[in-house]
Simulated assay, not measured.
Amino acid sequence: MTNPLTDPRLANNRSLLAAICCAAVCGIVFGLSMPLVSLRLEMMTSSGLIVGLNGAAAAVSTLVMAPIVPRLLSLVPGRVLIVISLILAGALHALFPVFESVPAWFVLRFVMGCFMTVVFVVSETWINQIATPLRRATILGIYGTVLSGGFGIGAFLFGQLGTGGNAGFYAGGLIFLIGAIPIILLQGPAAQAPGKDEASPRAIWGAASLAPAAIGAALAFGALETVLFSLAPVYGDRLALTDGGISLIAMAAAAGALTFQIPLGWIADRTDRRDALKWIATIAAVTPLAIWAVGDFLPGMMMLFFIQAGVASGLYTVGLALVGERFSGGAIAAANAAFIFAYGTGSLIGPPASGTAMDVVGPHGLMIVMSVIAAIYAALVWKRAS
């Protein structure tokens, strides 16, 4: 009887599972910590501006850290880098109730975001390097689905633990520590370190110019995802939906993100990934206009939010698979850093643009901005395909 922890025939699968576990851990902590930190800050300050700026600190940490990760990966083995980052992120998460002041929470949110960026860049680079080309988008679809599922589990944990005590902070820290276990135990091929030239900032920016369709997918997805999940409740409120109705459209969007990623990855693996991105972006540009058209008709909104969130999630899955197709070996680390940097940029600029549009033209300004973001990216990929 073979031992799945030592059988050399399962080595690739062990490494893939270890990397995908990173998505589960980060997703769970995201789902738990985002509402926990935001609501505790609201209680501490009664300032929506402070809450929003603290959330932006996580996006800024992505922009700062992503270009540095390839150099770190060239100096420290990938597994070691992930384990160190998970342990330190866990310690920081548990420190929030110890330093209960607004400046300290900005520092903690930023530094913890830096370590989480390391985990994302290294784990996604790892998957792209060892996934077989014919199954790459499907495997990344599984990765994305696990990340979305983890977010839902984290939100459930938040509902159970609440904001009244500090259990949520300690639970998040413990989850990070537990996440290091599969990285240590599931031994297999390691993430390939980039060479000196492949880890330079020039290589990272060069990756964006060599693969604009792939990197642009991350930028568009970062904006669309952040806008959808942060402002959809405001959109529903301004259309005079009940709290129950707002919850239903949020649940529909989350279900779409869970449902679509593996099928879209499977389709992209069996067709052409650039063609898949063309149609994904086109649908993501049209669906917000359909949401606008149905107004406050809740069943129609639920169906269309399900489609929009699900289809848009394919931008990340298929775009990341295109990175693995376009680059190889250590060069994937620089390309993945550019991908994560683009995602962080989109997540930083999307919400302010959408919020401003909602204030200027009404609630449907959200749908206009989402449609424009997807349409600009669709135009890019259709033009490059012509």
Rank of each mutant, 00 (worst) to 15 (best):
L239W: 00
I368S: 10
A190K: 03
I291S: 04
F260D: 00
A91N: 07
I82R: 12
F260K: 03
S371K: 12
V361C: 06
S47C: 08
L185H: 04
D296G: 12
A220M: 08
G314P: 08
V311L: 01
V69E: 07
R109N: 09
L63K: 03
V121N: 09
G172S: 15
F151L: 13
G179R: 12
V64P: 09
E42R: 07
M44H: 07
M112V: 13
I215W: 10
P133Y: 05
P212K: 13
L88E: 03
G314H: 08
A211V: 03
V98R: 11
G355T: 02
F305C: 01
I181T: 07
Y143N: 09
S209K: 11
G31D: 08
I82C: 13
I280D: 02
I142Y: 15
R270M: 06
F115W: 14
M302N: 01
A23Q: 09
A232V: 15
S313R: 00
T356N: 04
A281S: 15
F229Y: 15
M302T: 06
K196V: 03
G330E: 10
F341N: 09
P233E: 08
A252L: 01
G90K: 09
I87A: 15
Y377K: 12
A171P: 00
G52L: 13
A91D: 10
T117G: 13
V234L: 15
T132E: 10
L157D: 05
T259K: 12
V37H: 08
G244A: 11
L63Y: 07
G78R: 10
Q308R: 10
P194S: 06
L81G: 09
F327W: 11
N128R: 07
F96Q: 05
L228I: 08
L210A: 07
E198W: 09
L36N: 06
L348G: 00
L161F: 01
G149E: 00
G256L: 05
G324A: 02
L157E: 01
V51W: 09
L16C: 06
L73M: 14
G179E: 13
H93F: 14
L174N: 01
G350Y: 00
G141Q: 02
S200D: 04
M358Y: 02
L322V: 04
D237Q: 14
S200I: 05
A211P: 07
V311C: 00
M65Y: 05
C114R: 12
I20F: 13
A171K: 00
L322Y: 02
M302I: 12
V311W: 01
A57C: 14
L304C: 05
V102R: 07
L298Y: 10
Q129E: 11
L380F: 06
G355P: 00
A321M: 11
G55V: 08
L224A: 13
A217G: 14
V37Y: 08
P103A: 04
S354E: 03
G172K: 00
W266V: 08
R202P: 00
S328R: 14
M251D: 00
V64D: 05
T132N: 05
E100L: 07
L147I: 11
W382S: 12
L231K: 01
A257M: 14
A334D: 13
P351W: 01
A293H: 13
I130R: 12
R9K: 14
I68F: 15
P189N: 05
D275T: 14
I28L: 09
A250C: 06
L322I: 06
A167W: 06
S386V: 13
